[in-house]
Amino acid sequence: MNIFRLAGDMTHLISVLVLLLKIYATKSCSGISLKTQELYAIVFVTRYLDLFTDFISLYNTVMKLVFIGSSLAIVWCMRYHRVVRRSYDRELDTFRYWILLGVSFILALVLHEKFTLQEVFWAFSIYLEAVAILPQLVLLQRSGNVDNLAGQYVFFLGAYRAFYILNWIYRYLTEQRFTRWISCVSGLVQTALYADFFYYYFISWKNNAKLQLPA
């Protein structure tokens, strides 16, 4: 464990807490893409298949349970909670995410560390996570005005993977046997997808204005 990875995990945790806060405090999920939340639930379930077979540390197990539990709770809330579900922007959240699922799975069948069920699903979850934010970014562009909590949620979600890139650089320099090309390349793609969001987020923060994404 290094400071970059810890910062990354904490930032990721903050993004989940911000989203839970938004949904429970405002009883609304406006501006949040259910498709991105469902993709993230799939990411965590397929990535943590080793939850009960490989014990790394208490921290690792607890965080896995938190991410799986919170992502499923958010999907459940947005689908079935009688108050929250009414504020879901159904007609704006129309990204055809089957494409993302299909491409990620085919890529995982071709590019993986070992051809075992667990490793193929792990690679699938890495590729899927890189593109899982797309429905959310499209929804934010379509809905124009971005409420603070939704903007902060996406910001922290993007920042966490940026910390992980620093973690991979650090591990590459300090651990001679560290090669995680699948994670590194995917993580770079993932963070790059946020680049324009970060730019507009920074502009809005600098001008102390509402976050406006160009349609």
């Binding site: 990875r5 990535r47 790394i56 070992k114 792990w122 046997r177 995680r180």
Partner: peptide
């Protein structure tokens, strides 16, 4: 040696 390709990252 212990199998080192266990994914220790979240």
């Amino acid at each position: 040696i212990e199998e080192c390709n266990v994914h220790d990252e979240l």
